[in-house]
Nucleic acid binder design. Sequence first.
DNA 1: CCTTCGTTCCGCCATG
DNA 2: CACATGGCGGAACGAA
Length: 330
Amino acid sequence: VHEVVVLALDGVVPFDLSTPVEVFGRTRLADGRAPYRVRVCAPAAEVDAGAFTLRVAYGLDVLAEADTVVVPGVADPLRPVPEQVVVGLREAYARGGRLASICAGAFTLAATGLLDGLQATTHWLAADELARRHPAVRVDPDVLFVDHGRLLTSAGAAAGLDLCLHLVRRDFGAAVAADAARVSVMPLEREGGQAQFIVHASPTADGATLAPLLAWMDKHAHEAPSLAELAARAGLSPRTLSRRFREQTGTTPAQWLIVARVRRAQRLLETTDQPVERIASGLSFGAATFRDQFRRRVGTSPNAYRHAFRGAVRDRDGPAHADPRKMAQL
DNA sequence: CCTTCGTTCCGCCATG
DNA sequence: CACATGGCGGAACGAA
């Protein structure tokens, strides 16, 4: 089994802590076996988690056994990191372990110096501060996560889910990751399709064989190309393309296309006044089919979505609370 | 909401 | 022998 150790320091953010516990803990292989063992460790037996206190069963010594160490964010990222934690993380890395931070956990990770010279990310509110305190780290606040193989960082809390699913995908393939995502009711890949994976693809990521096809599919999704057409374009038989597709993306070509088309429909509903019927036909959907698919993926009807979106945009205008200095409530 | 029809998916298996 | 490929056909699914 793959050993996952989650590091709980005082002030740990419960959301960040539970994300890896849940995702890795619930992941199952095709045969039903659990590929990860997840343990939470801390420098002391009790850890302040804000609204409650944790009783932690393991000490920092289990860091030495970790294949993957997950470092969740803490409420006050500026608090100095205990020396023994820094040492433990460095040793885990030196032993070949993988270190992954969620949200403000990047501060803890940066304290080891291992991120120096590398690109990294964290919560957008904290990005400036991270860059200031660790000038050698190249902070990029605009990505969900950054993968350097054995050093990974992720942005705000929810991006921790993306990161964990990404790791599952690296370890056991897209099909297993898609399953884990389904359990979490979370899309395997967010907005922008595979952009996150292409831009920050890890050196060990599995074959980029389908990448060109996926890019083409994103451009031509509105034409609803058939499986036969896609196979011809990829130079594969339909049967082999189906297989490759599931291995690399976790879904089927048809599903992928529908998701891409619905996503494009959302953009059109947000930014244009085109009637729903026109949007539908522009995406090669029949009107009824479009409404049906839209509701199944998004949860509301196209018109309701359009109106809800407009309302939401109206409500959050103005530079209200964009003070990056206020980091109290990460 | 139900029905019909074409397409897609995937286990199975022969083949290279 | 291990392994990837791709055709076949029934079941599931999407389109209309």
